[in-house]
Simulated assay, not measured.
Amino acid sequence: MRILLIEDEKELAEALTAALGKYGIVTDHTAHLGDAAELTRQNPYDAILLDRRLPDGEGLRFIPELRRTGKDTPIIVLTALNEPKERVEGLDLGADDYLGKPFLVEELMARLRAVLRRPANLAELKITAGRMVIDPLHLSVTVDDAPLDLPRRELLVLVALAKRKEKTVLRATLEAAVYNYEEEIQSNALDAHISRLRRRLAEAGAEVSIHNIRGVGYLLREE
């Protein structure tokens, strides 16, 4: 899962990015609405976390602007402005959920799972490939009902490939699923993740294979 965090408190943003990373979430962060608009044009986010008090204005105005572009990305407002009338204002403007600060990361994760379970996102709840069942929301994989433990980055690569099984996935798409835009990506990092992932899937008897489409990307195929 890749999300956009629009938050001007640097320490909170860094802590939240690290905490969400433990759940396998890749987080792009910006403190400005202008940058957020550009990032949403460039990247297909699974969800957006939005503060209200931002250096370049009221965060809520970002919601109708995003909707006018045709994007229905779920938005959760995270803010200290948490009076009933303020929550109503945010929800009426199109927020999918509204969470007051301070909050527990566990509650935020539950709310993320809830907005992603809504009808428009139901198709991505679980993915079947070969003898595997992948749950992207809980970042779990089973092979014949037995858990398959994978390092976080390998699991993110697997989810990105499995969502598009039998189709070629561009290297850039896979890298975007694993790294945020601020991280420096070594030239062979993705290939190393794929190599280790292939070995683990073969050892587990997952009955899938990952093929290198030279110069383009990778493809996951059921055997």
Rank of each mutant, 00 (worst) to 15 (best):
L60F: 02
D46L: 07
R41V: 03
L39K: 15
D51F: 00
L50C: 03
L12D: 05
P55G: 11
I48R: 07
A15F: 04
P64E: 13
L93M: 13
A18K: 14
V88D: 14
T40A: 13
L91P: 01
N43D: 13
D46G: 14
D56V: 06
A15H: 12
P55E: 14
G59S: 05
V26I: 12
V88W: 02
Q42E: 11
E89A: 14
K22W: 11
G59P: 10
T27L: 08
V26F: 09
E14L: 10
G21Q: 04
A80K: 11
K22C: 15
V88L: 14
D92Y: 09
G57H: 07
L66I: 08
R52M: 06
P64H: 00
E83Q: 13
D51Y: 03
L91H: 10
E83M: 13
T30I: 06
R67N: 06
L50K: 13
V77T: 12
F62M: 00
T30C: 05
L50R: 04
L33D: 06
P64F: 03
T27K: 08
T69K: 05
L93G: 02
I76T: 01
L91C: 07
A31W: 07
L54R: 11
L20N: 10
D46P: 00
D72E: 15
L16T: 11
I75L: 03
R41D: 07
P55R: 05
Y45H: 01
G59I: 10
H32L: 14
A95G: 04
D56H: 04
R52F: 10
R87H: 11
E65Y: 06
E83N: 12
R87L: 03
T30L: 03
E65L: 10
V26E: 08
L12E: 01
H32F: 15
E83F: 01
L16Y: 09
R67Q: 00
E38N: 00
L20I: 00
A31T: 03
E38L: 09
G94D: 09
E11S: 11
T69L: 08
G90I: 02
P74W: 05
P44E: 13
A18H: 13
R67Y: 12
R53H: 04
G57R: 14
A13F: 09
A13I: 05
L66C: 08
A18P: 08
T69M: 06
P74K: 01
G94L: 06
L54K: 05
L33H: 07
G21C: 08
A18T: 11
E38G: 01
R53L: 02
D92I: 10
F62L: 10
G57L: 01
P55C: 08
D46M: 10
A18E: 12
K85T: 12
E89C: 08
E65I: 06
A19F: 09
D28P: 11
H29D: 09
L60D: 09
D51G: 03
R41M: 07
D28N: 08
G59Y: 02
E11T: 15
L33A: 00
V26Q: 08
E14H: 07
D56L: 02
L66D: 09
R53S: 13
V26R: 03
A80T: 04
R52D: 07
T17M: 06
L81E: 15
